[in-house]
């Protein structure tokens, strides 16, 4: 979009460029900030190790529970990761300015992309540790389920992260909202990795992504009004 004012042509950056700028900035926070991997990845590692202690030492039991354990850890880690939605803006006190400048759909897309990346790294780390420590297996269907399932989780998490950014109160409620919102991903993601016939579970994840994405897109602008 462009406009002419006092002889100067003002060109606003396109959607993809805006998303890229926001993603790059938030990815730096995720990589280096206290709200990102520095706190989440050690939590996932501790979760896998303690699961081995609690559910073991029977290797068969560990192998069976590993896929579901990883998804459960990812969803639990999603609660602190929701802070990434406005971490950079909170540090710079620029949340109000950002939501005034960037269209809600673009902001949702950028924030969801960052969260999807953070969740994917968390799932990959958990899976790697489950393979190394719990003798878990990695399947193509399991990886496809992660790629798909985390889309819906990232979309829902962006909404709850925006809710959290708008209010200092009620952060404890986030767990009660985030964990159920990821329930289809938890169940279908786990089943797709172990079932002989993963297609119905992958189809369920696609449906979940569509519904979660559409719902998040519909309600996100209302959370940016304040």
């Amino acid at each position: 979009m462009s406009g002419r004012r006092a002889g100067l042509q003002v060109r606003r950056p396109g959607t993809l460029r805006t998303v890229a700028v926001l993603v790059r900035r938030d990815a730096r926070i995720a990589l280096g900030g206290v709200d990102g991997f520095a706190s989440v990845l050690p939590f996932v590692a501790a979760g896998v190790v303690l699961a081995g202690l609690v559910l073991g030492p029977d290797p068969a039991a560990l192998r069976t529970t590993a896929p579901g354990l990883v998804w459960l850890l990812v969803l639990t880690a999603a609660v602190p990761l929701a802070r990434l939605v406005a971490a950079a803006e909170r540090d710079e006190d620029s949340w109000d300015m950002l939501r005034g400048l960037v269209p809600p759909g673009v902001l949702l897309l950028a924030k969801a992309v960052v969260l999807w990346g953070a969740l994917a790294v968390t799932w990959s780390t958990g899976t790697l540790l489950a393979v190394l420590l719990l003798d878990g297996a990695v399947t193509v269907a399991g990886c496809a389920a992660a790629v798909l399932g985390l889309v819906g989780v990232a979309a829902s998490l962006t909404v709850f992260g925006a809710l959290l950014a708008a209010s200092a109160r009620g952060a404890g409620l986030l767990a009660a909202l985030v964990l159920p919102a990821g329930l289809p991903a938890l169940l279908a993601g786990t089943q797709a990795g172990v079932a002989d016939e993963p297609w119905p579970w992958l189809a369920l994840l696609v449906a979940y992504d569509l519904v979660a994405g559409a719902t998040s897109w519909a309600v996100f602008p209302f959370l940016l009004e304040e």
Binding site: A181, V211, T215, L223
Partner: peptide, 16 residues
Amino acid sequence: RRSAAVGVVAFLNVPV
């Protein structure tokens, strides 16, 4: 406004 946004998202659990 906030609870309405959550009220819309929360209904996704009913068909589940």
